[in-house]
Deep mutational scan, measured.
Amino acid sequence: MTTFKLIINGKTLKGEITIEAVDAAEKEKIFKQYANDNGIDGEWTYDDATKTFTVTE
């Protein structure tokens, strides 16, 4: 398992979430669903070196 981080830079929601997953593709799906469930629609980036997804509205 690898630890992945999501950084949220939303208009109404900001924060960080850290979760373990098998791979980045699995985690991306979970993070995007979390963002969608919380009304966050923005630009996504991924840094493989730090295993960090960022979504910015």
Rank of each mutant, 00 (worst) to 15 (best):
K5W: 14
E16A: 05
A24G: 13
K11W: 09
F4D: 01
F31M: 10
N9T: 08
D41N: 12
N38H: 12
F4Y: 12
T54G: 03
F4L: 04
E26F: 08
T52M: 03
D41Y: 13
G15T: 14
Q33P: 01
I40Y: 06
E16Q: 05
N9M: 12
D48V: 05
I30K: 05
T52C: 08
I30W: 13
V22I: 11
T52P: 00
E43V: 12
E43F: 09
I17K: 01
T45S: 11
A25R: 06
F31K: 00
G15C: 15
T52N: 01
K29V: 10
V55I: 12
K27A: 15
K11R: 09
G10Y: 13
E28D: 10
T18G: 04
A24K: 08
I30L: 10
E43I: 11
K27S: 15
K29S: 11
A49P: 04
T56G: 05
A25I: 09
D37H: 03
G42T: 00
F31R: 00
V22N: 10
M1S: 07
G15M: 15
M1C: 15
I17G: 02
G39T: 02
A24P: 13
N9Y: 13
I19A: 06
V55E: 04
K14C: 15
T18R: 09
E43D: 09
W44T: 00
Y34Q: 00
A24F: 11
E43R: 07
V22Y: 11
E26Y: 10
T45I: 06
T2H: 09
N9I: 15
T2W: 14
L6T: 01
I8L: 08
W44E: 00
D23F: 06
E16V: 11
D23H: 08
T3D: 04
I40R: 00
K14S: 09
K11Y: 10
D48Q: 06
L6K: 00
A21L: 15
D23V: 06
K51C: 12
T45D: 06
G42M: 05
A21K: 05
L13G: 09
K27W: 15
G42I: 08
I8Q: 00
E28R: 06
E28L: 15
A49K: 07
K5H: 11
E28V: 09
E28S: 06
G42E: 01
Q33A: 13
A25G: 08
A35L: 14
N36K: 14
A21V: 13
I7D: 00
A25H: 07
E26M: 07
I30Y: 10
T45P: 00
N36S: 12
K11Q: 14
Y46Q: 00
D41H: 11
E43M: 09
M1R: 09
L6N: 00
D37W: 09
Y46R: 00
T54W: 11
D41K: 12
L6H: 00
I7P: 00
T52W: 01
E16P: 06
N38G: 03
D41G: 10
M1E: 07
K27H: 13
E20Q: 10
Y46H: 00
A21P: 03
K11F: 13
K5S: 08
K27G: 15
L6M: 04
F4A: 01
K5E: 06
T3I: 11
E57W: 14
K32C: 13
F4S: 03
G42A: 06
V22D: 08
K5I: 14
I17Q: 01
T50C: 09
K27C: 15
F31H: 01
G10N: 04
I7F: 05
K51W: 09
I8S: 01
D23T: 09
K32Q: 12
K51T: 04
L6G: 01
T54N: 05
F53I: 03
D23S: 08
T3W: 04
L13I: 13
E57P: 09
G39F: 08
T50H: 02
K5F: 13
D37V: 07
Y46M: 00
E20N: 10
N9Q: 09
N36L: 14
A25F: 12
F4K: 00
Y46F: 05
K11T: 15
D37F: 04
G42S: 02
F4N: 03
K51M: 09
D47G: 00
I7V: 11
T3R: 04
K27R: 14
Y46W: 04
I19S: 09
T2F: 14
F4M: 04
K32M: 12
K29C: 14
Q33R: 06
F31N: 01
E28T: 05
K51V: 07
T12Y: 13
E57D: 05
Q33G: 04
I7N: 01
Q33N: 07
E20F: 13
T50A: 02
D47Q: 02
E16C: 15
V55T: 02
T54E: 04
Y34V: 03
D47N: 06
Y34K: 00
V55G: 02
V22T: 09
Y46S: 00
K29N: 12
T12A: 09
F31P: 01
T2C: 15
D47S: 02
T45C: 08
I19M: 06
W44N: 01
A24I: 14
A35R: 03
M1A: 09
I30G: 02
I17C: 15
W44G: 00
A49N: 06
V55S: 02
Q33S: 04
G39A: 10
K51P: 02
K29L: 12
A24V: 12
G15A: 15
E20C: 14
A25P: 10
G39Q: 05
E20P: 07
T54L: 05
F53Y: 07
T2N: 04
T56K: 07
E26D: 14
T45W: 07
K14E: 12
T12M: 09
K51S: 08
E28I: 14
E26K: 04
E20L: 13
M1Y: 08
Q33Y: 02
I17W: 13
T3V: 10
E43K: 09
G15D: 09
E43A: 07
T56C: 13
I19D: 02
K51N: 09
A24E: 12
D47T: 02
K29W: 13
T2E: 08
E26N: 13
T50G: 02
T3E: 06
G39I: 04
T56D: 04
